[in-house]
């Protein structure tokens, strides 16, 4: 296992886990989020292919009510 951060919270994930796998593990609907890895937007068609590394900072953004 390695340690990453998910929206500021520490999270232990299997080594080489993909970004998609992290979301799946947390039961997060992939269609409901945009994903930022270490301050870079990761297009959703790459979530399967990018593997987590220790210390990664993963941030999820969502659409909310607004004017």
């Amino acid at each position: 296992m390695i340690s990453i951060q998910l929206n500021g919270e520490p999270l232990a994930v299997p080594e080489h886990a993909s970004l998609a796998a992290v979301l799946h593990e947390r039961r997060l609907d992939p269609n409901a989020f945009a994903l930022v890895l270490n301050a870079e937007l990761v297009p959703r068609n790459r979530w399967q292919h990018i593997r987590c590394r220790a210390g990664d900072k993963l941030e999820l953004f969502s659409a909310v009510a607004g004017g």
């Binding site: 929206n7 409901a32 941030e59 999820l60 953004f61 969502s62 909310v64 009510a65 004017g67």
Partner: peptide, 27 residues
């Protein structure tokens, strides 16, 4: 209109996107 926001994973929030998409309006 909608806004984008960093998710607070500890707090549940209303899913407005699903119902909005169902109405067929342009976002």
């Amino acid at each position: 209109t909608l806004a984008m926001k960093r998710v607070d994973l500890a707090r549940a929030s209303d899913d407005i996107l699903g119902p909005l998409r169902a109405t067929g309006v342009k976002l």
